[in-house]
Simulated scan of single mutants.
Amino acid sequence: MTHHILKATKSTVHLGGFSHELEPALKVDSGDTVDVETYTGYYIHDKAPAEFLTAQFLDICQNLPPERKIAKGPHLLTGPIYVRDAEPGDVLEVRLEAIAPSLPVGFNAIRSGWGALPHQFTQPALRFIPLDLVNNKAEFPIGSSIQIPLKPFFGILGVATPEDARSSVPPGYYGGNIDNRELQAGSRIFLPIFVPGALFSIGDGHSAQGDGEVNVTAIETSMNGRIQLQLRKDLQFNTPIAETPTDIITMGFAPTLDAALEQALKNMLDFLERFVNLSPEDAYVLCSLAVNFRITQVVNSPNKGVHGLLSKAIFSSKINL
């Protein structure tokens, strides 16, 4: 097992989407760990305060090569990371070992035409929010004494697909812009692999977010993390699934919340049948009795997200993934 350091530079990041044609930023073996650096705010860097900017980030914003600009999404992603021996049909297990903001400020943006209430909040608005990295809090509104605990996570965890350039905005069967605040340090996510090497990318750091992410953004934050990438040829999934220290998480992504809920539920039924050996009917009943379904996000057009939380505490023996 080798440990790698992947800094964010104009040759190791890409903008706006995923592509199987991208040159890998790093090649690793299964089981390797990576200290990864990510930046956010590519399109608003000219409005940002000095503490939001670093020389490396400015170099990316000013000199990112055209071939690293993939699609029209706003997200700056680090990667892709090529995992040797990964083949379509395998599963990539991403262990999120550490996640922490790298700068003492993040931003929140309202974008015209986006969000859960686009007809009520029609004017764009950009706010930079100081982060108290010592006490792990952010005050908002500033001067209000309202203290929001920082619970950092990466909004985007995804792999490339055989299709042409794919926007970073919607989540899907490949992962992507999941924006699931449960995926904090100590969690792991399982992503189906669609192209050789998996081509995994990461970014869209969030220091704090509510379920739903209703105004389009969280506290968007440049974020560092440590991940371990494990190739799982013993598993078969066709959609992301995750595990936190307390829960198993299934996900659904669709244009409506009803359809996203149905997907998340069906994925949970499938999990219970395969890994807990329940009958379909017993799995359905258990979901009604013990699984909590939550709105992940409603703003990553065209797909909304719902996730189901299955508490591991209800089982007398460990569920092995």
Rank of each mutant, 00 (worst) to 15 (best):
229 L>C: 08
242 A>F: 05
46 D>T: 14
71 A>N: 13
123 Q>A: 14
252 G>E: 09
242 A>G: 09
85 D>T: 15
311 S>K: 15
132 D>F: 09
74 P>A: 09
295 I>T: 13
221 T>K: 00
120 Q>E: 13
103 L>M: 01
64 L>V: 10
183 L>I: 12
271 F>P: 03
168 S>N: 06
5 I>R: 14
42 Y>W: 12
199 L>Q: 08
78 T>N: 09
76 L>C: 12
115 G>L: 00
238 N>W: 12
95 R>I: 05
316 S>T: 13
58 L>S: 14
213 E>Q: 11
304 K>R: 10
93 E>A: 04
249 I>V: 11
83 V>P: 01
6 L>N: 02
79 G>S: 10
134 V>N: 12
56 Q>P: 06
42 Y>S: 00
170 P>K: 11
293 F>E: 06
254 A>R: 08
183 L>D: 03
132 D>S: 14
58 L>E: 15
154 F>R: 03
312 K>W: 07
162 P>A: 07
260 A>L: 04
284 Y>C: 02
257 L>R: 00
291 V>C: 07
14 H>C: 07
120 Q>F: 12
9 T>M: 11
186 G>L: 12
199 L>S: 11
23 E>A: 04
97 E>F: 04
153 F>E: 10
218 A>P: 00
140 F>K: 00
118 P>A: 09
302 P>W: 01
55 A>F: 03
48 A>P: 03
283 A>Q: 02
299 V>K: 01
269 L>G: 02
238 N>R: 13
131 L>K: 08
312 K>D: 07
117 L>V: 12
242 A>H: 00
30 S>P: 03
7 K>T: 10
64 L>K: 12
113 G>A: 11
278 L>I: 06
267 N>Y: 13
230 Q>S: 10
108 N>A: 15
238 N>L: 08
227 I>N: 00
318 K>P: 01
257 L>F: 07
288 S>N: 15
105 V>W: 03
117 L>E: 11
135 N>F: 14
119 H>C: 13
143 G>I: 14
284 Y>R: 13
281 E>H: 07
223 M>D: 03
134 V>R: 08
27 K>E: 14
70 I>N: 01
277 N>Y: 15
22 L>S: 05
296 T>M: 05
280 P>D: 06
9 T>C: 06
175 G>V: 03
221 T>W: 00
121 F>N: 13
120 Q>C: 06
264 A>M: 08
64 L>W: 10
221 T>I: 03
237 F>T: 10
304 K>I: 00
317 S>T: 15
5 I>V: 11
3 H>R: 09
199 L>T: 04
57 F>V: 08
147 Q>Y: 15
37 E>M: 13
69 K>C: 05
109 A>D: 05
20 H>S: 13
54 T>M: 09
138 A>H: 01
4 H>D: 02
321 L>C: 09
313 A>Y: 07
212 G>F: 05
256 T>W: 05
8 A>L: 05
298 V>S: 01
159 V>M: 05
101 P>H: 05
267 N>R: 13
263 Q>H: 12
139 E>L: 02
10 K>C: 06
205 G>Q: 10
86 A>I: 03
28 V>D: 01
319 I>N: 05
182 E>C: 12
